[in-house]
Write a protein that binds this DNA or RNA. Structure first.
Lengths: 119, 119, 119, 119
DNA sequence: GTGGTCTAGACCACG
DNA sequence: GTGGTCTAGACCACG
């Protein structure tokens, strides 16, 4: 379910955060669905529990999930727009960078059209 | 000429590296142009010379610039493709992320068209 | 395990880099083997941690090792060809130099055959 | 006559030193031949005179050339063995490095035979 | 003056 | 504990 690359330069807690956001965006995780407990997920992914906790804390802070002490963590009722904006703000940044160096919008659009993703 | 944000979470040496790459991409810096000396740039930006040196050394290692001891640092003859690929690989990543969460290529293209950049 | 000559004119970080490449080439260090931590190696060799870090960072940039913040540094999955090419490109240079001054290939081959290395 | 690459990481004075040694080894420069004056060579190569002087000083120190104050610098009577040993000690080093990482003498000999130099 | 190396020491992010 | 960034400051090689 989760897809963590230990060798990536992206921090693990950040990868996990993105993973969960993607799962919500895709509709795999829905409102009030329970997330795995920190301990069980730490075991499953062979990762330090502190790292999992950090991901959950950020997600809770951002209103993506909520936690009940002693009961676990759950998906909050999230407007999909919020989720999309997370990814799209990254996208906008890249577009700006590309435009800054002189590429045109048409260049980028063509590049998107050519893009063959392995989903 | 250079645009460094000391508060940013992006390392200073990384910001400077990107700055220089952009300037080459835009054609502001051309082959064999001399870069400011490490010491002078360090003074101008109020940054430690070691940090500037780190940027220059990475750029040299990547073939973007070359340094001559006792003479200075200069822009290497770089194929523009190399430079563009630096920025476009980021772009491709963002496109993939967006597609992963269910956005369509049309969504992204529309977003690019709407994009109003302050260049 | 590591062999550093503080008196040499070859930079320490460069000696260490070569040391590690040789150990990989010899098969002493294998994929995913953990390298000593920067701090512990710095103590052991009585060298500043920054210098060790520089070696590690170059090796990482060249894809010989990978580093995980908070976890350590490890040998990457390296094709042995890459490693060999590091050493053999030096060798080729020397051969060219020798041929330039009028020595023949036979001279060099004879010299290799006579060579008595203390391994 | 001289072949200096300003962009090389090898110091200019070292390149010039090697150049002259090669010319002696090839027999282009012979005993008592006069070398260009420091100033004229500096102009010709567009190099700092101090740099030329340094090369000459090292060559004189090594007995390859001799200088007469006010008259100029000249090739000394050099046994060719001395010259060859300069280049061959580099060669031996490379051979040792290659053997250290597990290559065999046969590997190296084969590599020499394949070598196609553009002289 | 120019870049390159190194040390000492601080502070941070990650796990 | 682990690596990453940065500063201050020294010293060296090269030109």
């Amino acid at each position: 379910m989760f897809n963590i690359d230990l060798q990536s330069r992206i921090p693990i807690y950040e990868q996990l955060r993105k993973n969960i956001i993607e799962l919500v965006a895709k509709g795999v995780l829905k409102e009030n669905d329970q997330l795995p407990s920190i301990r069980s997920l730490a075991k499953e992914l062979n990762i330090n529990p502190n790292t999992i906790a950090k991901s959950y804390q950020i997600l809770e802070h951002d209103g993506i999930i909520y936690s009940n002490m002693g009961r676990g963590s759950f998906i909050a009722g999230v407007k999909n727009d919020i989720i999309n904006d997370y990814i799209l703000s990254d996208f906008d940044n890249c577009v700006c960078e590309a435009l800054k160096i002189g590429l045109s919008k048409e260049d980028l659009i063509r590049r998107i059209e050519k893009n063959e993703v392995n989903l």
